[in-house]
């Protein structure tokens, strides 16, 4: 495991008023790795990736991206550092063509700021082809696309910008089975291209096929981390249920748990 770290987050604490969403989270992503960030609703998954993408500022803790230390980020900075967020429909502008959405916020322009429209269309076409999305013209407004296709468009942003880390926040929510399959294929393609991703989901059956490592969040803490090679989907399900019920990992899996520091917190 001498891989380079893309992202390290140390002791992240985030409070919303009197509610503590994250209670000292340590989290890292290595090069060319797919991390499945799982946990029940309200565990803090979304908050964690939003901090990573600079939408929220952490109250305490530090973020190290490619060796550079940050107190907090902002979306623009995160982009410049090669982090792309894929969100269920939320980032796309429905009335605008696919190519504009792919380049949204990162338009190719000349020195005066005028758009290089043909170049952007060409690159968009090439990236969509890599994902097998050639059915719709690049001029098609995004609102005409199905949910899976939209995710494909968002993921092609990651390919276009040579992002190192793609954060997929619940990318399969509200998608049909076929489309979910599609999205999982996209994630595999990202890994084949040497990129890393964080796959956030509460559905372990969506995460399991693509992730290399699972990070399980519960009530604002990382309670467990496992390599996929150590577990079957059934094991993972059992662990998840146990955490939801008792807040702890079953004894027989503890020796596989990479998060050995767990247990000295306030849980008894």
């Amino acid at each position: 495991m001498s891989k380079r770290y893309i992202v390290e987050m140390h002791d992240i604490i985030k409070r919303f008023g009197s509610v503590v969403a994250l209670r000292g989270v340590d989290f890292y992503v290595q090069e060319n790795e797919v991390v499945g960030l799982v946990g029940d609703n309200g565990a803090g998954k979304s908050t964690l990736v939003k901090i990573l993408f600079g939408i929220y500022a952490p109250d305490e803790g530090e973020i190290i991206i490619k060796g550079k230390k940050f107190r907090k980020l902002n979306p623009k900075l995160a982009y410049e550092l090669g982090i792309i967020l894929v969100h269920q429909e939320r980032i796309l502008c429905g009335n605008h063509p696919i190519w504009r959405n792919v380049f949204m916020g990162r338009e190719l322009t000349n020195k005066l700021g005028f758009l290089k429209i043909n170049e952007m269309k060409k690159i968009t076409y090439e990236c969509l082809s890599q994902l097998g999305l050639t059915r719709m013209q690049v001029e098609t407004p995004v609102k005409y696309l199905s949910g899976g296709y939209m995710q494909g468009v968002q993921i092609s942003r990651a390919l276009t910008f040579e992002a190192d880390l793609v954060v997929l926040d619940e990318p399969t929510i509200a998608l049909s089975l076929v489309e979910t399959q599609r999205v999982l294929e996209y994630v595999n393609k990202l890994r084949n291209k040497g990129k890393s991703s964080i796959f956030v989901s509460h559905n372990i059956y969506h995460v399991y096929p693509v992730a290399d490592r699972f990070v399980i969040l519960d009530r604002g803490r990382v309670v467990a981390e496992f390599y996929k090679k150590d577990l079957t989907p059934e094991d993972l399900a059992e662990i998840m249920i146990s955490i939801a019920r008792t807040g702890s990992v079953p004894e027989k899996y503890q020796k596989l748990n990479l998060k050995l520091t767990y247990g000295k917190g306030s849980f008894s």
Binding site: N74, P75, Y79, I91, L92, C93, N95, M104, G105
Partner: peptide
């Protein structure tokens, strides 16, 4: 700038998220 104008009107949250 024109593209930004459209994005701000179309999807303000999204526009903010892309910086």
């Amino acid at each position: 700038f024109g593209a930004y104008i459209y994005y701000v009107g179309d999807n303000r949250t999204g526009a903010q998220m892309v910086g």
